[in-house]
């Protein structure tokens, strides 16, 4: 297992918005999800990692073992990108894009690129703007894979795809990860879907890294207890935060192995639940 991305950003400010104490890694063969609410700083972070925003002096981003600041060229050789808003000229065809921009990469392989286009059933000579959203994503993926990227950065790639196409896209990603040569950092609002597929999760809130760990570990750290509200006072000392409805109540507790009352239903929270409690200030930095 090798680290394909190592990010350390103590502080970075942009237009009155700040990223604070960001530190995480992406390993080859694993999918790391970058989650957060709107305005949490996901796009800013991805822009910084991909070199679209200048990094502050104190920050360090290593891609494939190369520093983005000192060896930008080598670092970018290792990075592939798939953005919701494609950076390529939409008037060009996928074939022409490959011919035009591919050769800038040292390891560019045109044969491989054409093979990927065929495999993903992307019309080679049709203008990119005429491709469907899903095809555009796959085209970017084909481009990234054809220059031997070991790290893929994806910003909301599945946001506007229909469920069938989304599944297909995720399947392709799983295949890429199987080889254990490439690691993926994927930001998305589709929390529930990513929860099932991501090996690691990085949660951002107000520009701050709330937690970064394996998805299983994060979810195992907490428990949701549900039941009648009258029973809650007995657990008051353990409940970190609660969500009340007219008849039932739900509370978040730390899963530290202590028994829970049998008359309360006890379930593992989802990432969406955790996001709710982060927003409420119940889950704070350092708790996971």
């Amino acid at each position: 297992m090798s680290t394909v991305l190592d990010v350390k950003i103590p502080r970075m400010q942009r237009d009155g918005f700040a990223l604070k104490e960001i530190e995480f890694q992406v390993e080859a063969g694993y999918l790391t999800a970058l989650l957060g609410m709107n305005g949490a700083g996901k796009t800013t972070l991805l822009s910084a990692i991909s070199g679209l925003l200048p990094l502050p002096e104190e920050a360090e981003v290593m891609i494939g073992g190369y520093s983005l600041r000192e060896n930008e060229k080598e670092a970018k050789e290792c990075m592939g990108f798939v953005f919701d808003d494609s950076p390529f000229d939409e008037g060009m065809s996928p074939l022409l894009t490959g011919q035009m921009y591919g050769p800038y990469y040292r390891n560019w392989d045109m044969t491989k690129y054409i093979a990927y286009l065929e495999r993903f059933e992307i019309p080679k000579k049709r203008a990119i703007r005429k491709l469907s959203k899903g095809m555009k994503m796959k085209f970017q993926l084909a481009f990234a894979l054809s220059h031997g990227a070991t790290f893929l950065i994806m910003d909301e790639p599945a946001a506007s795809l229909d469920p069938v196409f989304r599944d297909e896209f995720m399947e392709v990603l799983s295949e890429i990860l199987e080889d254990e040569e490439c690691g993926i950092l994927l930001s998305s609002q589709l929390v529930s879907e990513l929860e099932a597929k991501a090996d690691y999760t990085m949660m951002l809130y107000q520009g701050e890294q709330m937690f970064f760990d394996s998805t299983e570990n994060i979810l195992d750290k907490f428990l949701l207890v549900r039941g009648r509200y009258e029973l809650f006072p007995y657990m008051k000392s353990r409940i970190l935060g609660e969500r009340l409805s007219e008849y039932t109540a739900e509370g978040l507790i730390l899963n530290n192995g202590d028994p829970v009352r049998l008359d309360l239903e006890c379930v593992r929270p989802t990432m969406e639940d955790l996001m709710y409690y982060i927003k409420r200030g119940v889950i704070r930095k350092g708790m996971v």
Binding site: G41, A48, P56, G207
Partner: peptide, 15 residues
């Protein structure tokens, strides 16, 4: 040649 801004203290507006 520009470096990114680091910011000072709490002079930031976080969302």
């Amino acid at each position: 040649n520009k470096k990114g801004s680091v910011g000072k203290g709490d002079d930031v507006c976080s969302l």
